[in-house]
């Protein structure tokens, strides 16, 4: 029997080890898997590479993980949202590595990794400093930059409903990075508002099929210590 349900948030994030690369969904506060991030903070893994659109705000969640010195490198498109105080401090002090990637390129690099594609040409960033050190080619008069697929060891994803096979739905624009990150990570861990019986999500309403998901956990599943 396939059963991907983890009984607690701490159990869900247990396999993350020092040095892991971790994708985290979210666009600002929308789609952020807050409970899984808090579980990761408690879990203790360090020397992490975080792949996420933003770099956290205030001193909670992802920003807290940064502040605790647990993140070696962040791959993101927009680390300068208002309230990104921790990232700003660390970056200016030279204590965190930043790989800045245009948002569409970030998404497509992950999608390529999940879809089994190799490097691809995109017009985004052609002729800019983002293209430095990368192959650039003009095809039919239009310039393109060669970009590499981007995979990760783990993805922490905020979804809405799941069943025990890991089929997922998302709520409103919290969908965001979810479907792509689920594909691009070796191990995808999704937190959900509710776990529903197998078959109760209509097949055509499944947004991310369980084949891309390793673990699901209710966002309020007791965060017991292991």
């Amino acid at each position: 029997m396939i059963n991907k349900i983890a009984s607690s948030l701490s159990e869900a994030v247990a396999p993350i080890t020092d040095g892991s690369s971790v994708m985290i969904t979210g666009f600002g506060d929308s789609g952020l898997p807050r409970e899984l991030i808090d579980a990761l903070i408690e879990q203790g893994a360090s020397d992490l590479t975080i792949i996420s659109n933003n770099a956290g705000t205030e001193r909670v969640g992802l920003a807290r993980l940064l502040e605790l010195g647990r993140v070696r490198k962040i791959v993101c498109s927009y680390p300068k949202s208002s309230g990104s105080v921790v990232f700003t401090e660390l970056y200016r002090a030279g204590r965190i590595e930043l790989e800045l990637v245009p948002q569409g390129t970030l998404l497509e690099r992950m999608r390529a990794a999940g879809a089994g594609l190799g490097p691809f040409f995109t017009p985004t960033g052609y002729g800019t400093t983002i293209a430095d050190g990368k192959e650039q080619r003009v095809v039919d008069g239009k310039g393109y930059v060669l970009e590499q697929p981007l995979a990760a060891d783990f993805a922490l994803v905020k979804a809405y409903h799941a069943d025990r096979w890991g089929n997922l739905t998302y709520r409103l624009a919290a969908r965001g990075f979810g479907p792509v990150m689920c594909m691009a990570a070796k191990t995808t861990i999704a937190q959900v508002d509710d776990i529903v019986p197998l078959g109760s999500i209509a097949p055509e309403a499944v947004v991310t099929p369980g084949i891309f998901v390793s673990r699901v956990v209710r966002k309020d599943a007791q965060n017991g210590r292991s």
């Binding site: 666009f27 600002g28 506060d29 929308s30 789609g31 949202s81 948002q103 569409g104 998404l107 497509e108 992950m110 999608r111 995109t122 017009p123 985004t124 709520r171 409103l172 624009a173 919290a174 969908r175 965001g176 990075f177 979810g178 479907p179 792509v180 947004v207």
Partner: peptide
């Protein structure tokens, strides 16, 4: 919180709206 715009302001949907994952959203752009 799950309905915001690029400026992170709260928004609402209009009749006929659709919501897609972000890679499809960027396909619309690029």
């Amino acid at each position: 919180e799950d309905l915001i715009n690029a400026s992170k302001q709260h928004v609402q949907l209009i009749l006929g709206a659709s919501i897609v994952d972000q890679s499809l959203s960027f396909a619309m752009m690029r």
